[in-house]
């Protein structure tokens, strides 16, 4: 690894500030309300959105809710064992939930159908199929693309029976208010910074960092779970790289959604 760093390049031939090729496919699961498959080099993440009708909570009668869940099955890497989700999966789920809440990409009020009576619950199941590092970035892209792909049927409440009636013919998309995109970095010995680490680079690094920004250049999350400290200039470098990454990914998502629409 040190040999590579001296030459300013990485084992897979990338430069230090280069992302792996990102490919995106949306609507891959036909039975889900919305879905997306993201490949970041070898890392593969699939996200399915399932919408269910539920009663709003008593504390927030005018709000629906979003339940994200990140699954790291034994299939994706030998480091994960079957059974209940491990610490990394739980931390990733919490991170995604925090990003949804912080960025306000969907307003919980939009998911309400009838105040105090009926609302949508969006179950966002994110699953890793191939673990080769940087799952947080891939998860956010998959989630964002899947939510943009989501179509909800129209629901009306029958006045006489008070039962909800679902009109599957009439469907509409969700309103996405913000487009948060993450950029992850690995730090080696407080000095060398690399972007989009692979699983090997992650395990060798001394610290990891994820910056999430939206289209207005506001930061939604600066997640550094620990490791070696980072100076202010380096942090600034990470943030500016994250903002350019946000532009690239938003363009990619728009392009893919556009191409799907024209196919129909």
């Amino acid at each position: 690894m040190f040999h590579f760093q001296k030459e300013n390049c990485r084992p897979d031939g990338r430069e230090l500030s280069e992302f792996r090729t990102t490919t995106l496919n949306i609507g891959s699961i036909s039975t889900a309300n919305g879905s997306a498959l993201v490949k970041l080099g070898n890392t593969t993440i699939i996200c399915g959105i399932k919408a269910e009708l539920a009663n709003p909570t008593v504390e927030a009668p005018g709000k629906g809710y979003i339940v994200p869940n990140v699954d790291l099955p034994p299939l994706c890497s030998s480091r994960f064992r079957p059974g209940p989700p491990g610490e990394q999966a739980q931390a990733a789920s919490q991170f995604i939930a925090d990003v949804i809440e912080s960025s306000e990409l969907i307003k919980a009020e939009d998911l309400c159908i009838e105040r105090g009576k009926l609302c949508w619950v969006l179950y966002c199941d994110i699953m890793c199929l191939d673990y080769d590092g940087n799952i947080l970035d891939a998860c956010i892209i998959a989630l964002l693309a899947a939510l943009k792909n989501t179509q909800l049927p129209e629901v009306t409440i029958n006045k006489e029976t008070c039962a909800p009636e679902v009109n599957s013919e009439k469907r509409r998309g969700l309103t996405i208010h913000k487009h948060p995109v993450g950029a992850s970095f690995c730090v080696f010995d407080d000095s060398i910074l690399i972007v989009d680490p692979t699983a090997e680079e992650e395990s060798l690094s001394t610290a990891q960092l994820t910056v999430v920004t939206d289209e207005a250049d506001r930061l939604c999350s600066l997640h550094k779970p620990g490791g070696t400290p980072l100076s202010g200039e380096k942090l600034q470098e990470c943030i500016s790289r994250a903002t350019t990454r946000q532009r690239e990914i938003q363009k990619l998502i728009d392009k893919v959604i556009c191409s799907v629409k024209t196919e129909k």
């Binding site: 960025s103 250049d217 506001r218 930061l219 939604c220 550094k224």
Partner: peptide, 14 residues
């Protein structure tokens, strides 16, 4: 006095 860990909630500017 460098930042070892950072955890944030909500959106904010640089």
């Amino acid at each position: 006095r460098r930042v070892l860990m950072s955890s944030t909630k909500g959106s904010f500017s640089v």
